[in-house]
């Protein structure tokens, strides 16, 4: 039997995390499944657990310097009903699980679980999000794609907690979120796409494209985006297949119990082409 801590402040939580190497427990909807093994038995956690979502310090959603800060303790349902949360993220979160689970689950927990199939995380990639990591002595920020390093792997240090998600203001004019799930609701992702672009007149000023569940982490290519940015819509139209093929080469999905590599690749490319077509002339 492991210990469970319910700290009364973030400071105390950080101390427990650092001293005991305790497992951060937010909504718990990933952990309760991951460590359960028998109906009626207490899950087998590998380390002491710290409950976090009751901490007021990490339950806030606020704007600062044009950026949105989501406290790590806010549930998916809370952020869905918040007026300042970007539409792209809301759309993604709306496709996660079902109402009951969204009342419990947190985006921060999803990030730390580091599944390449997490729909909300896919949207966070396309929104250039960062995470704030706090330890008893300091805090730091990492881009989400720097933080997540592989399936189930992150840069979270043993004395750190993810305390905030920071999302720059989304100034996109065209957006697409599409989840291809195992069914129409309460579904896990076979693949997903979150994409946003800013067009000014005939020019593509900015583009951000993230593909979920087609590689070990959510896939985003800043390099390809740079090649697209600055093109006229007509130029993009001409070179569209070139870009599609470049993305296709990076898409490396797997076969698993939910779908096949062949399907994931084909459909991811179809959706990507659809998005690029929608912003090209």
């Amino acid at each position: 039997m492991v210990e469970a801590y319910r700290p009364s402040s973030l400071e105390e939580a950080l101390k427990i995390r650092a001293d005991k190497g305790a497992l951060p427990f937010a909504g718990g909807t990933d952990l309760m499944v991951k460590y359960r093994y028998e109906s009626g038995a207490v899950p087998e956690y590998p380390a002491p657990v710290i409950f976090l979502t009751h901490l007021e310090e990490i339950r806030k959603i606020y704007s600062q310097d044009g950026e949105l800060h989501l406290g790590a303790g806010t549930s998916l349902a809370e952020l869905m009903s918040h007026s300042e949360v970007p539409e792209l993220l809301k759309e993604a979160v709306r496709t996660i699980a079902a109402p009951g689970l969204r009342n419990t689950a947190t985006l921060a927990g999803n990030i730390c679980n580091a599944s390449p199939a997490a729909d909300g995380v896919c949207a966070l990639y396309a929104l250039d999000s960062r995470v704030k990591l706090s330890s008893p002595r300091s805090s730091r920020e990492l881009a989400i794609y720097e933080f997540i390093t592989g399936p189930g792997k992150t840069e979270l240090r043993e004395d750190e907690l993810l305390t905030e998600i920071i999302i720059p203001r989304d100034r996109s004019t065209t957006r697409l979120f599409r989840k291809v799930g195992t069914r129409k609701a309460n579904a896990l992702s076979k693949l997903s796409i979150a994409a946003a672009a800013r067009l000014s007149g005939e020019r593509v000023d900015e583009v951000r494209i993230a593909l979920g569940a087609v590689a070990p982490t959510v896939l985003r290519s800043v390099e390809l985006e740079k090649q697209i940015q600055g093109l006229s819509r007509a130029e993009l139209s001409e070179r569209l297949e070139h870009f599609v093929q470049s993305y296709e080469a990076m898409v490396q999905p797997i076969d698993d119990q939910r779908s096949t590599a062949v399907y994931r690749k084909k459909v991811a490319v179809n959706l990507l082409r659809q998005f690029l077509t929608s912003i090209a002339a």
Binding site: A98, T182, R183, K184, A185, A187, Q257, R258
Partner: peptide
């Protein structure tokens, strides 16, 4: 993973 229909 074994997906039966939902209400939607």
């Amino acid at each position: 993973d074994y997906t039966i229909p939902t209400s939607m």
